[in-house]
Amino acid sequence: MANSNTASPAMCIDTHIHFWELKRFPYRWPDEGAPDIMRRDILPSDYALDVRDTPMKNAIFVQVLNKNHPENEWVFELAKTNKWIVGVVGWVDLTDPNVESILKNAAQNPLFLGVRHLLAFENSEWIGREDVQNGLKALEKLNLTYDLTLLPPLLHWAAELPPKFPNLTFIIDHIAQPYIKDHITDGWKEGIVAAAKHPNVFIKLSELVTSAGPDWTAADIKPYVEHVVKHFGAKRCMYGSDYPIFKMVGATYTDVYQLLIECLKDCTTAEEREGIFGQNAVDIYKIKVPLNK
């Protein structure tokens, strides 16, 4: 468990949370093989309870389902009574010939910030396909964002795609899920350096304890965070909890929040930490709705 005496940021935005209602949609995960703690409905009321001991007052929902437009609308409805949901990174079929009009329709809701597609359910070349990249062009044209879900072997896409779409904001989720538990950095370290060379690539400091496993420690995780901050710079980094996935390794929300403060204290200033936990998300995702302070 992380411990820190560093002051908490004044305004916080969690850029990566999930909800699901298992009987509502055909989820590929959590499935029957998922841990019991994940095989239950996860709703805004659960999140609100779990963050009560932190200053977290705003959050961005990130898609759980590929090939499921109704999930976007479901979260838009949840946000009507949970005003702390200040953004949605949803799912849209990037391969649809009418993708631009579909995105325009989604973006009529000011909560809609961009798109994610879970690459774990596709082959390694999916994002390089012409029809997918036509969708990326539409995102770029409409000033929306694209979240990249990359394991280290796919991190090369975070360096190859940005030059093709220089005005599209790419956001690497979970610092590309390095193998912290196994202490393997080969490939990941170099991939981070290569991705960071492109100014339209940003990164979430998220899913850290899950990558480190149930015996996680701040000492194990800190070098990974410092490597990311060194190459991306603090202004291109954002905090994300990856709620509720961290519960699989026995962590609480407070653990996750305090862990990142601990990992950042030697490589960032107080002002930079304020950005990582708040203002950077506003600037990168272009959040359009009022924030809770």
Rank of each mutant, 00 (worst) to 15 (best):
K137V: 02
A107W: 09
Q108S: 12
F112I: 06
I192Y: 07
L155C: 00
I184R: 13
V92E: 13
K104G: 05
A196I: 08
I192R: 03
N200D: 13
A194L: 10
A158I: 05
I171M: 05
F121W: 14
N105L: 09
E160W: 01
N200I: 10
R129M: 09
E125G: 03
A107V: 09
A138T: 09
P152M: 12
V99T: 13
R116C: 06
G135C: 11
D93E: 14
L113C: 14
P166Y: 06
D131A: 15
T149L: 11
K141M: 04
H174T: 11
D173M: 09
T185V: 13
D131M: 05
A194V: 02
L136K: 06
V193I: 15
E160T: 01
G187Q: 09
V88G: 03
D93C: 06
L139R: 11
P162L: 04
V115I: 15
G187Y: 12
A195F: 08
W188K: 10
D186N: 09
T145K: 04
D93A: 10
N105V: 01
P153W: 12
K189I: 09
Y179T: 07
L136G: 02
K141N: 15
K141F: 01
P153K: 08
R116S: 09
G90T: 03
P199T: 14
E100M: 03
F170R: 05
D131G: 03
W157K: 02
F202S: 14
E122L: 10
I192P: 07
V92W: 01
S101T: 09
D182A: 15
K181T: 07
N98H: 14
L103F: 01
V209E: 02
K189R: 14
L139W: 04
G114H: 06
L139P: 04
P166Q: 10
L113N: 04
A138P: 11
L148C: 12
K189T: 13
N109Q: 10
A106R: 13
I192A: 00
L161G: 04
N123Q: 03
A106G: 00
S206D: 08
L161H: 00
D96F: 01
A158W: 10
T95D: 12
N123C: 06
N167M: 06
R116M: 08
L168R: 11
I171V: 15
K137Q: 13
R116Y: 04
L148E: 08
